[in-house]
């Protein structure tokens, strides 16, 4: 049964990196469309648009972070893969779910907020700080999900 445990653990890592990554890709895509629209009118805004566009990218990184910790925990990064039961594998899988789900969804909404913020600085360039803060509000929940996943992984021992 040890193969099933490892598989479940890996599935968790794949979900964390994959779903959070999809979310970030969609979010950055949404923000990028908005940025391209603004820059077609005002190419000088490239710098501030790029920063706002990059904001929904962190969820993908959080997902990668959890995936990396899982791979490390399963002994797949050099050394011998650990032998775990299917129920232990399921624990790892469960631990990955918060960042997978919240990362996926929050990145998309953060992308929408970024897109709106980009529209805002096209009209009010002075409000850049406020424009950056609004998408950062969304990210809070991805941070909380990351912590939940991380701490759960730390607590699981085998």
């Amino acid at each position: 049964m040890d193969v099933l445990g490892l598989m479940l653990g890996l599935l968790g890592a794949a979900f964390a990196a994959g779903m959070a990554g999809i979310g970030s890709a969609v979010g950055i895509g949404i923000a990028g469309e908005s940025a391209a629209g603004v820059m077609s009118e005002d190419p000088d805004k490239f710098g501030s648009c790029l920063i706002l566009q990059a904001l929904p990218g962190t969820q993908g990184i959080y997902g990668l972070l959890i995936a990396f910790i899982v791979l490390n925990k399963l002994g797949l990064l050099g050394g011998q893969p650990v032998s775990i039961s299917w129920s232990q594998g399921l624990l790892v899988f469960a631990a990955c779910l918060p960042i997978a789900i919240v990362g996926w969804y929050s990145a998309i909404w953060q992308g929408k907020t970024s897109a709106a913020s980009i529209q805002m600085i096209s009209k009010k360039p002075d409000a850049f700080a406020k424009a950056v803060i609004l998408p950062a509000m969304v990210e809070t929940y991805a941070v909380l999900a990351l912590l939940t996943s991380f701490i759960t992984l730390m607590v699981i021992s085998f």
Partner: peptide, 17 residues
Amino acid sequence: YSRLLALGLGSAVIGSV
């Protein structure tokens, strides 16, 4: 403020990867 841990962890893990 837990983001202080999360972001610091983020830098460390990306660096390790």
